[in-house]
Computed example of a mutant assay.
Amino acid sequence: MRFPISNFVSYNKFSSNHCYFLANITSNVEPRTCLQRGCPRGSLASWCVAMQSEIAALEKNKTWDIVQLPPGKRAIGCQWIFKTMFKSDGAIERHKARLAVLGNHQTEGEGYTDTFAQVAKILSVRTFLLVAIAKNWEVHQLDVNNSFSHGDLHEEVYMKLPPGFTSSSPTQVCRLRKSLYGLLQSPRNWFAKLISALCTYGFTQSHADHTLFTFR
Rank of each mutant, 00 (worst) to 15 (best):
N28C: 08
K60I: 06
P71N: 14
Q52Y: 04
L123Q: 14
A45P: 02
V101S: 12
L130I: 13
P40C: 05
H95W: 12
S88Q: 11
A97N: 06
N104E: 03
Q52D: 13
S16P: 12
E54N: 07
C78H: 06
S53V: 07
K87C: 13
L123P: 10
M85I: 07
P71R: 01
K83D: 03
L69Q: 10
G38P: 04
A97D: 10
Q106M: 15
F128T: 09
V125G: 07
F14D: 15
K13V: 12
E59S: 10
F21D: 10
E110V: 15
P31Y: 00
K121E: 11
V49A: 03
L22E: 06
S88W: 00
I66L: 12
H105E: 03
L58H: 03
A57D: 08
H95V: 00
R98D: 06
V125M: 15
V49D: 07
I25K: 13
A117K: 08
V49Q: 12
I81L: 07
N17M: 05
A56E: 09
F21P: 09
S53F: 05
A91C: 04
S46R: 03
M51L: 11
G90N: 06
I76G: 00
H105W: 02
D89M: 09
C19F: 02
W80R: 01
P70Y: 07
Q68I: 01
R32A: 07
V101C: 09
E110D: 04
W80E: 00
G38H: 04
R41E: 00
A117T: 08
F82T: 03
E59N: 05
E30L: 00
H105L: 14
G72M: 02
P70A: 02
E108V: 08
D65I: 07
C39L: 11
R41F: 01
F128R: 12
Q52P: 00
A45S: 14
N61P: 09
S46Q: 04
N104V: 03
A45L: 01
G72S: 05
N28K: 05
Q68E: 04
V125R: 13
V101N: 08
A91Y: 08
L102M: 09
C48E: 04
L69V: 04
G109A: 07
Q52V: 09
L58I: 10
L99Y: 08
V119P: 01
F116M: 10
A50R: 05
Q79K: 15
R32N: 10
I76F: 09
R37A: 04
S46F: 00
K96Q: 12
Q36C: 02
I25G: 03
I76Y: 02
N24R: 15
K62C: 04
S27T: 04
T115Y: 12
H105R: 10
T113A: 06
A97E: 01
F14S: 11
E54Q: 14
F86D: 09
E93I: 00
R74V: 15
T84W: 09
P71W: 14
E30K: 04
T127N: 15
L102S: 05
L22D: 04
K13N: 15
I81E: 10
A23S: 09
I66E: 11
P40E: 01
C39M: 03
S15E: 09
K62W: 05
S43A: 12
K73E: 06
